[in-house]
């Protein structure tokens, strides 16, 4: 087990460097000159431009720029935005908000998705199952922003049940509605995954044997069906942590939340290399750690993985 964890941690190293370099390379090959764009139509003296270029290391070759950046990254210096604010400051305000939103969404989709999927799988072909399938199909096919605007209009504007926009500090209760919107698509996938997995496992020989032991139906379902059905669902949830962080851009836009999505979007527009790369580097780390966590959870759920070579 220790060996397994260690191996996975070692695998993170090339992933981290590969991903950050790729992003760095892409951001700096974006068309247009960020410095010129910064000043818009105003004339700027070449000397000033050269000075700014030197300040942000833009005059050096790509590899050197990257190495300087990574060097700073490990010393906690993530560079500054063009407006002079430290990137680490921007992160400290944006990440907690998005993390809160994503975790809330993850909670909703996991709990509701598994529950609905389980019931649908147990009642395959019945009314509940059919409705769950239709609803999930609807959620998958309708774009998130449509769902977002509809919910915002119906529950926020018409019924006045929640604030249509989230305040600056983004407290948890204001994030409930955005989290539901953010979770909607993944919820639909989890319902379908759980449903398929449960109905597969229901037909398994060991479930029949468990019933033959004289166990009650609820026990057979929770102990022998549910746990075995969770492995594919957990995989999905792990990958989803990453997409929730990124997918929050749209939701954050609708509900006016000052999270990661908006910040990264603005930074890309401005061509603020250090900001984009730093944010994404942190996301890569979150993504990789989440996947490691999922792998460990696998091992907890399925002993065959735990004891495999």
């Amino acid at each position: 087990m220790l060996w397994y964890t260690g191996k996975r941690l070692l695998q993170m190293i090339p992933v981290f460097f590969g991903a950050t370099f790729l992003i760095y390379f892409m951001v700096f090959s974006l068309p247009g000159d960020p410095i010129a764009a910064l000043y818009g139509d105003r004339p700027v003296s070449p000397g000033v431009i050269a000075q700014i270029r030197a300040e942000y290391n833009l005059d050096k070759p790509l590899i050197e720029q990257y190495l300087l950046y990574i060097g700073g990254f490990f010393q906690g210096d993530l560079g500054t935005t063009f407006s002079g604010r430290a990137v680490s400051d921007v992160m400290a305000s944006a990440f907690p908000i998005t993390a809160r939103l994503a975790m809330l969404a993850l909670f909703f989709e996991a709990v509701a998705g598994i529950l609905v999927g389980l019931v649908a799988g147990l009642r395959k072909g019945k009314l509940f199952d059919a409705s769950a399938l239709v609803v999930s199909l609807l959620l998958i096919s309708v774009p998130t922003f449509v769902i977002g605007f509809v919910l915002q209009y119906v529950f926020g504007v018409q019924l006045g049940l929640f604030r249509t926009t989230v305040s600056g500090s983004a407290p948890l209760d204001e994030l409930i509605m955005p989290a539901l919107v953010l979770a909607s698509v993944s919820f639909a996938y989890i319902v379908r995954l759980t449903r398929a997995s449960v109905s597969d496992n229901l037909g398994a020989d060991f479930v029949r044997t468990a019933t033959a032991k004289g166990l009650s139906r609820p026990r057979v379902v929770t102990v022998h069906v549910l746990r075995n059905s969770l492995v594919p669902v957990v995989t999905f949830l792990g990958v989803d942590i990453g997409s929730l962080m990124v997918g929050a851009i749209v939701t954050e836009g609708i509900f006016n939340i000052n999270g990661v999505g908006g910040t990264v979007y603005d930074a890309i527009q401005l061509g603020e290399g250090p900001t984009v790369v730093s944010f994404i580097a942190v996301m890569v780390v979150i993504f990789v750690v989440a996947n490691l966590f999922v792998d460990l959870l696998y091992a907890a759920l399925d002993p065959r993985i735990r004891y495999a070579k």
Partner: peptide, 13 residues
């Protein structure tokens, strides 16, 4: 049951 390979739940001891 018939098949000892599939009749014990693999995730429980």
């Amino acid at each position: 049951p018939q098949d000892p390979m599939s009749n014990l739940n693999p995730v429980w001891n």
